[in-house]
């Protein structure tokens, strides 16, 4: 087996996979995408000059792969298929929670759902900063942004999450009350 692949796999595979999973929220798709990350990495590994750390370099490639996949999803084919295939249309909003999430407490499930309501940039920052616990510098490096852009995006993202979490809570509370009355 390729020594480069072997090394990267050992060091970062689960990180990259998890990052992609939280971006696309679909295990099968994340499995495909992580392979795409390796393909891009192996093709351009000679060009990796060690300017940034290996880790942020991998994250930046993973981020590009994720964004490309979003673009692909929005291709004309999908749009047309969606129109005809009503079953996917209904399912799409209520994707079943993966097992790992479903067994967690309610708040975790809620925040997992709320991630959908962030923009892609905001989601990138949230996942990198809080789930993977990258530093601001590492995040800026991976995204090719300035540190101040990371900070403002992070601030806005938390605000969006907060708003929606409260909104969710309020709705849920009302539902519960409704049940009690009956």
């Amino acid at each position: 087996m390729d020594s480069v692949f072997d090394e990267l796999y050992k060091k970062y595979h689960q990180d990259v996979f998890q990052f992609l999973f939280y971006m696309v929220k679909n295990k099968e798709l994340a499995e495909d995408l992580v392979q795409e990350v390796y393909i891009r990495v192996l093709k351009s590994y000679e060009r990796f000059e060690g300017k940034s750390s290996e880790k942020t370099w991998l994250f930046s490639i993973a981020r590009n792969v994720a964004i490309d996949s979003f673009r692909k999803q929005k291709g004309w084919k999908q749009k047309i298929m969606e129109k005809f295939d009503w079953s996917t249309q209904q399912v799409k909003d209520e994707l079943p929670l993966p097992d790992e999430i479903a067994v967690q407490r309610e708040e975790i499930q809620m925040i997992y759902r709320c991630l959908d309501l962030c923009t892609i940039d905001q989601r990138l920052v949230i996942i990198m900063r809080y789930i993977h616990e990258l530093t601001i510098t590492e995040t800026a490096d991976s995204l090719g942004w300035t540190e101040s852009k990371v900070k403002t995006t992070q601030h806005r993202a938390l605000k969006v999450l907060k708003n929606h979490m409260e909104h969710f809570k309020a709705k849920e509370g009302m539902d519960n009350e409704g049940i009690k009355v009956e």
């Binding site: 689960q14 708040e107 809080y130 789930i131």
Partner: peptide
């Protein structure tokens, strides 16, 4: 929120590295 996010479960790729390669 940060606390909550850091408690998000780890998601693992269950495939073998050979298979992926």
């Amino acid at each position: 929120l940060q606390e909550l996010l850091s408690q998000m479960p780890k998601i693992k790729d269950s495939r073998d590295s050979r298979e992926i390669y």
